[in-house]
Amino acid sequence: MSRAAIEIRGLTRRYGKTEAVNGLNLTVRAGGCYGFFGRNGAGKTTTIKCLLNLLRPDAGTLRVFGLDPQKDEVAVKSRLSYVPDAVAFYPWMSVRDTLDYFASFRAHWNPAIETDLLRRFGLDPSQKAGALSKGQRTQLALITAVCPEPELLILDEPTSGLDPIVRREFIETVIGAYQSGDTENRTVFVSTHLISEFEGLIDEFTILEQGRELLAMPADDARERFKKIRVRFAAAPGRLDLAGALRVQQTGREAEILANGNSERLLEALRAKQPQELRCESLSLEEIFVSSKILTQANP
């Protein structure tokens, strides 16, 4: 069993009477890229803030690199970087000043990555941070996060509100400049709504629902397990009675069926009805997220 970069057990955090996080369990393997999905208000940012010791948990345990972020705050923070969704820099500082300022807090800073990314993003080092666009601020934040070459990169909705080209560059940078270094010790923990853009990057994920994990599994396993079957008959078949299907949606001669690990059996049952066309495809991570409530019902 490989080491865990993050380990969360029974995490609970309330705001007044509202339970933002309510008994969350989660383990992030070191060296992987972990997706943290949930609707607005599901508790993603609260969880991340607890990891960074910006909020104190009401109950449960948190470990980052096996350390307690409350007791060993400096040891934990020196080994990770964080890119929040809304990035703010001191507006009077230039890009150059900002980078030097961030570097001054770090034991290690890779100047080659800095030069490379400044050129790649086309950022002017003499420009004032206050004059940067939202996209440029995110790019600057990414440079400050990647240059220390931390063991853990925590991204909270990093690409929301950015144009498609900046989003693409962002993800390529995470893969190229960050992930390709010392690969055993490069872990990405990303909370996002733009799941399809991160699909290729994510190898494990948790879907958070009302402060608790609804579904947690490796991405390949999820795509293997959750499938969508489309079928068309020569004549309307009447109500399809398919034992084990998670959901059957019928319109006339066509039907769409959701399968949870039993697509082979369902396909066989449908084949026996002599369909004109029968197709089966995996759900994407985004579709899995959207349908997660249905998918997590037990097979009837």
């Binding site: 992987g32 890229c33 390529e172 893969i175 992930q179 290729g200 190898d203």
Partner: peptide, 17 residues
Amino acid sequence: SIRPLAEELRLNRNTIA
């Protein structure tokens, strides 16, 4: 090579490795 291919396909480099 793994890195340019991972960037181009926007895949986790571990997948290609």
